[in-house]
Amino acid sequence: MVDFLQNIVDGVMVGSGYALLGLGFTLIFGVMRRLNLSYGPSVMVGIFVGTWFHLRGAGLLAVIAATLAGTVLANVYVDRLCFWAVRQRSAITAVVSSFVIWMQLEEAVILVFPDRTYPFPRLTALEPIELGPIFFRAEYVTMFACVALLLAGVWLLVYRTRFGLALRAVAQDPVAARYMGIPLDWIGLGVAVMAALIGGLAGLLIAGTDQLVIPKFGLWATYKGLIAMMLGGMGSIPGAVCGGLLLGVAEIQFVWYLGAQFRDLAAYFLLFTFLVLRPGGLLGQAIVRRELAAFRRI
């Protein structure tokens, strides 16, 4: 029982990182109706930029700033090339376009960083916290706290500001939004920057916990974010968070009870079952309808 609870605690902590990646995916998808396969690789570029500064002796704040800036630049590049330039065209073209740019980003990073792994600074040096029989790793607690704060911020931004209203308007009806004078191009750019900042933070927290970075982080982050988004329901912000947490808890429980090799298998099994039985995800029936319209012509 203690194991089970400990697994849930660890799962929620790990899952909060997935939740951030899912949140970035769902923002881009929800507003722009585009699947950005290069989202994970953009974050990977960001943490490698951070590492570049770290290797040259920069302080933690500089590394954080560099990571966020690198992610934003990479993601804006993807957004302008794959989505802005082909935005009026078909969704499948944009997906494939974002895939080839992923290949490009990965190769560019490997050219600059040819080794298999590189170090990343630790974000916190606190001792683990013990509450009765349950352990809380300090890195995880930091991650969880950051995620909770960020979510509150995102919620305020989306539901309490002019930019947030514009986001929701574009998400629900881009044509009507243009009639209101909402500039779609700028909203698209704003979403790309916002998603990149969220992803960059996720990258910082995850790389800071592992204290290393690898080029395959891009693939990993795209997978985790995509699964978190799909489990929760595409385009749903609370859905992405629930999806990320569910994914984290499921992974840890499966690893504990079945073994490490079942971690990813369980995640994909969960995803496949969800898609077949409940394609709208945990929260998000209405999204299915709209997504259908967006993808009708591929």
């Binding site: 209203l165 629900q172 009507a176 009639y179 209405a286």
Partner: peptide
């Protein structure tokens, strides 16, 4: 412009 088919934002 009041567009054809109204185009309100349904979940807002």
């Amino acid at each position: 412009l009041v567009p054809e088919n109204r185009l309100t934002f349904p979940e807002v």
